[in-house]
Simulated assay, not measured.
Amino acid sequence: MALQSSVDATVESDRVVFEYTVENVGDAPEEVQFRSSLLADFAVVADGEEVWRASDDQMFAQMIQTERIDADDGETFAEAWDDPAPGDYTVVATLNATGDDAEARTDFSV
C-alpha cells in the first residue's frame, strides 16, 4: 500500500482535538477494507501506559466495508478527548483496516 499517515493534536481550553489524515501517495488508487464501522481509533499514552482510547465503551457495527482512496487523495478522521489532566502525552492514531495498518503518532502537552 502507498498510504502515508499523520496525526495532529490541537489543545483547547477543555479538550484536545485529534485529526488523523491518511493519504495515498502512490500513483494508483488504493482499496482499503475496514473491519467494522470503526474506521480509525485514537489512543493517548503517558509514561508507557494508555490513559484514554476513543473507542472505549462504544459499540460498532461488525461489517466489512471497502473504501477507495485515489492517488494524491486522502481521508481525515477526527476525535476529541474531553477534560484531559495536565501532562505530557503521545497520541497514537490507527486505521482499523485489514492488511497493513497505517499508524501515526505525535507528542503533545496539556
Rank of each mutant, 00 (worst) to 15 (best):
V7D: 06
V7I: 02
V7E: 03
D8I: 05
A9F: 00
T10E: 13
V11T: 14
S13V: 13
D14W: 05
D14H: 09
R15N: 10
V17L: 15
F18Q: 06
E19S: 13
T21R: 11
E23Y: 12
E23Q: 15
E23P: 00
N24Y: 03
V25Y: 11
V25P: 14
V25C: 12
G26T: 13
A28P: 03
A28W: 00
V32W: 06
V32F: 07
Q33P: 00
S36F: 12
L39N: 15
A40F: 10
A40V: 10
A40N: 12
D41E: 15
D41Y: 05
F42N: 03
F42Q: 07
F42M: 11
A43F: 07
A43G: 11
A46W: 08
A46Y: 02
A46S: 15
D47T: 00
D47W: 03
G48C: 10
G48Q: 08
E49P: 05
E49Q: 11
V51K: 08
R53V: 05
R53D: 09
A54V: 07
A54E: 10
S55G: 02
S55M: 09
D57Q: 06
Q58F: 06
Q58A: 07
M59R: 14
M59P: 00
F60N: 02
A61S: 10
Q62H: 10
Q62M: 15
M63H: 05
M63A: 12
I64Q: 13
I64Y: 07
E67S: 01
R68A: 04
I69L: 09
I69P: 14
D70S: 05
A71D: 09
A71F: 07
D72C: 04
D72T: 12
D73G: 01
G74I: 04
G74N: 01
E75K: 13
E75V: 14
T76D: 04
F77E: 03
F77C: 07
A78S: 15
A78M: 08
A80C: 09
W81V: 05
W81K: 04
D82M: 04
D82C: 02
P84N: 09
P86I: 03
P86D: 13
G87R: 05
G87K: 04
D88S: 15
Y89T: 02
T90L: 13
T90Q: 14
T90W: 11
V91R: 01
V92R: 14
A93E: 08
T94R: 15
N96W: 08
T98F: 15
